[in-house]
Design a protein around this nucleic acid. Structure first.
Length: 703
RNA sequence: AGCGGGAUGGGAUAGCCAGGAGAUUCCGGCGGGCUCAUAACCCGCAGACCGGUAGUUCAAAUCUACCUCCCGCUACCA
């Protein structure tokens, strides 16, 4: 890793996060792939030797589970998606030098080799852990093969994360009351030896690594917290068939342990590079130099997988003797009309949908790369899309291209014979400099802006010089001005190519250039265009208002339809989740109330709640906690210590002596290191404390 | 609560990392020009005490400290 500026004299590789092979691509995915593609093209334009590689992520339990539900082989299931992705990317001008998948031979071999190396270097050890096991199906239950209760919040949780409750990541063996998703039977926990990668041993290395890391600041800063909290070693094996086998050798107890999906997934970056290298020859591009020696490695990822790329991955690379990434650009998320993108609610713009609407890919590329920086969350709405396209691409860039070339064609049948003026030459050089700087700052928006502003200058220039008035009186002067404009048009084309490759190519052809604008370098923006060219056409088309209204309406209807399908979606937030509950209610009062639960329970269920009258004996705040208070509550038989979230809402000094209502047979829990043995009942956000108003005795049961 | 990311003219955004004449670009508003061009393009005007407070400095949107509010992740919503 080195930090001299792009272009360097070393080969580079750009990657983007692997698409997971179990669903349709949407605009959120595209942002990453287009961003990485535009960055890679930018590097090429700078003259950097580089490759852009990626592949489909095929393994893991979600694929296995979904495949099983459909009754197909996981490999076939994943391959279907893989092929679909492979077909989709070119349609957005996302031009991978190689696109593989994690289940192919290259990745399998390389993954096993790397794991073996880590093992031999002593970075992997074996540890016995509790793993859920289904006795009927006679198999272990990794990750999403098991559901149960979250040990932290008590909500229903999946084996690998508490998806409905506290969102916590769960390590194997943590879920309580495990149930098998295969048979629905209760699962049992069994002791089981698994492999662990000692991430913790790389703490110092990673700290230093992050200091030198380029890219977006979130990729550099967020991991520091995890390091400070202390890195946990990482369980890298799973009990299942679908995946890459743990390489035998070190220890073979004949088990079918498979590597955790997050081990082989990033290795696909290397494997895919290797495939590219093997295809074009190592003279052309040497993957080993890139990955093992001194190449410049840049990862473009979503900000949700920073941990894997800034902690686990560099630790693996270092441990296995590979080169460290130079930069990690972690992109923000996409929101739709200001709200979070949600595939289940169908609030998304799908890749296929965008294309079916007949929009040119370059428009979306331009929107996604120049609206906000790489790191920022970007909102998408059809209105904003229209504004950007009509204002910048049609009005500024397209119009300048067309008016310049058309004028040149009509009066000179091409580029007039004159030299480019000093002023224009310098202006183009300035834009080239801005572009180079933007690329080195991982600033795609800056790349786009340098080009757009040059087109803007072009419009000012042609307007200010009014060549249409000069053709008769001062023909030489007119030729001079148009010569400048054609040069500017060409320069804008070259500079904008990373973002609008197809449109730039068309421009390139319109001015009579041969070959590919993609092969042009920044300096070519100053090279004279061919003497003659044909009549130009308009390269960007306006999006009409009616079109936008229609698209917006379609989107809204879709979201509503999805909301109706899902009988109930839990979190309401500020949304108008108007299913049926609030039809009657006016916004004044019922608006904020939680909806009534539909499910009724029997008297027996109620009787299981042992609710008692208690009297608060003492109350004190818990150190470091904002809301929690430690209470001693007398419930007749005994005095209970209870933790309650009421510290800020009550004057603690006044609580002692107050009667309260306590759920006595609540499971004990530890909160903030303090044991809580019961639950005080209170209403709402304000924690309005429930109490008695008659002469109920302490300890009396409430029924 | 911790950690990240934000708070800049009506809306959306840049600048801050490498502090220096009261600040970018786009949309919108108002007025004008032009007609080569996709009713496009060009020019001008109105409009911001750069979230708050206190510091550092000759000088701060830009650095420091504290605070408020928003977003995300993580969490103590027992």
């Amino acid at each position: 890793m080195s930090t001299d500026e792009f272009p360097t004299d070393r080969p580079a590789v750009v990657t983007c996060g692997l698409p997971y092979a179990n669903g349709d691509l949407h605009i959120g995915h595209l942002r990453g792939y287009i961003g990485a593609d535009a960055f890679n093209r930018s590097l090429e334009t700078l003259g950097q030797e580089t490759a852009y590689v990626c592949g489909s992520d095929m393994h893991g339990t979600p694929v296995a589970v979904n495949a099983e539900q459909e009754g197909v082989d996981p490999a076939d299931f994943a391959l279907d998606w893989h092929r679909q992705y492979e077909e989709t990317f070119p349609k957005f001008n996302v031009d991978f030098d190689n696109y593989g998948h994690t289940h192919d031979e290259t990745n399998t071999e390389l993954t096993q080799e790397i794991v073996r190396t880590l093992d031999e270097a002593g970075h992997i050890y074996e540890k016995e852990i509790q793993v859920a096991y289904d006795p009927d199906a006679d198999q272990y239950l990794p990750d999403r093969y098991v559901v149960g209760t979250c040990p932290y919040c008590g909500e229903k949780a999946r084996g690998d994360e508490c998806d409905e409750g506290c969102q916590r990541h769960l390590e194997p063996g943590e879920v309580e009351n495990p149930e098998s998703t295969i048979t629905g039977n209760p699962a049992e926990y069994r002791q089981r030896a698994h492999k662990f990668f000692e991430v913790s041993a790389f703490t110092d290395y990673l700290t230093e690594f992050l200091d030198g890391l380029e890219g977006t600041s979130n990729a550099r800063n967020q991991p520091r917290q995890w390091i400070e909290d202390g890195l946990q070693d990482w369980c890298i094996t799973r009990d299942m068939d679908w995946g890459i086998d743990y390489p035998n050798g070190a220890d073979s107890d004949g088990d079918d342990l498979v590597l955790y999906v997050w081990v082989d997934a990033p290795i696909e970056y290397i494997a895919s590079t290797k495939q590219y290298s093997e295809r074009v020859g190592t003279d052309e591009y040497d993957w080993e130099r890139v990955w093992k020696d001194d190449g410049d490695i840049v990862h473009v990822i979503g900000r949700d997988i920073i941990q894997h790329h800034a902690i686990f991955w560099p630790a693996m690379l270092e441990g296995a003797g590979y080169n460290a990434p130079r930069g990690i650009a972690a992109t923000g998320f996409i929101t739709i009309n200001g709200k979070g993108l949600s595939t289940s609610r169908n609030r998304a713009i799908w890749a296929k949908e965008y294309l079916d609407e007949g929009f040119h890919p370059d428009l979306l590329r331009y929107y996604l790369t120049t609206t906000g920086g790489l790191q920022q969350d970007v909102d998408f709405s059809w209105e904003a899309f229209q504004e950007k396209v009509n204002g910048e691409l049609v009005g500024t860039v397209g119009n300048f291209w067309y008016r310049s070339l058309l004028f040149a064609y009509r009066n000179y049948e091409g580029t007039p014979e004159a030299d480019v003026s000093e002023e224009v030459h310098e202006r183009i050089e300035g834009a080239i400099g801005e572009t180079r700087e933007a690329v080195n700052d991982y600033d795609l928006r800056g790349v786009g802006h340098a080009a757009t502003r040059l087109a803007q200058f072009g419009n000012e220039y042609i307007q200010g010089n009014e060549p249409w008035k000069l053709t008769d009186e001062e023909p030489e002067r007119a030729a001079q001005v148009i010569r400048d404009c054609v040069q500017l048009a060409k320069a804008v084309g070259v500079l904008l190519e990373p973002i609008t490759p197809d449109k730039s190519q068309l421009l390139w052809e319109q001015i009579g250039e041969d070959g590919e604008v993609a092969d042009a370098h920044l300096e070519d923006a100053l090279e004279a265009p061919p003497r003659t060219f044909d009549e130009p056409g308009e390269l960007f088309e306006k999006i009409e208002d009616e079109r936008v209204e229609e698209l917006t309406r379609k989107l809204e209807e879709r979201v509503e339809a999805a909301a109706d399908d899902e009988d109930e979606s839990d979190e309401g937030e500020t949304e108008t989740d108007d299913t049926d509950a609030d039809e009657s209610g006016d916004m004044t009062d019922t608006g904020d109330l939680e909806p009534l639960l539909e499910d009724r329970i029997g008297f027996e269920d109620f009787q299981e709640l042992d609710i008692r009258v208690g009297r608060i004996e003492s109350a004190e705040g818990i150190e470091g906690a904002d809301d929690l208070a430690k209470l001693e509550v007398d419930i007749g038989f005994e005095t209970r210590q209870v933790v309650a979230g009421i510290k800020q809402l009550h004057d603690l000094d006044e609580l002692p002596g107050t009667n309260c209502v306590l759920l006595a047979n609540m499971e004990p829990a530890e909160l903030f290191g303090v044991e809580s043995n019961g639950m005080i009942l209170a209403a709402g956000e304000e924690a309005d404390l429930l109490t008695t108003h008659g002469d109920a005795e302490i300890g009396e049961k409430i029924k």
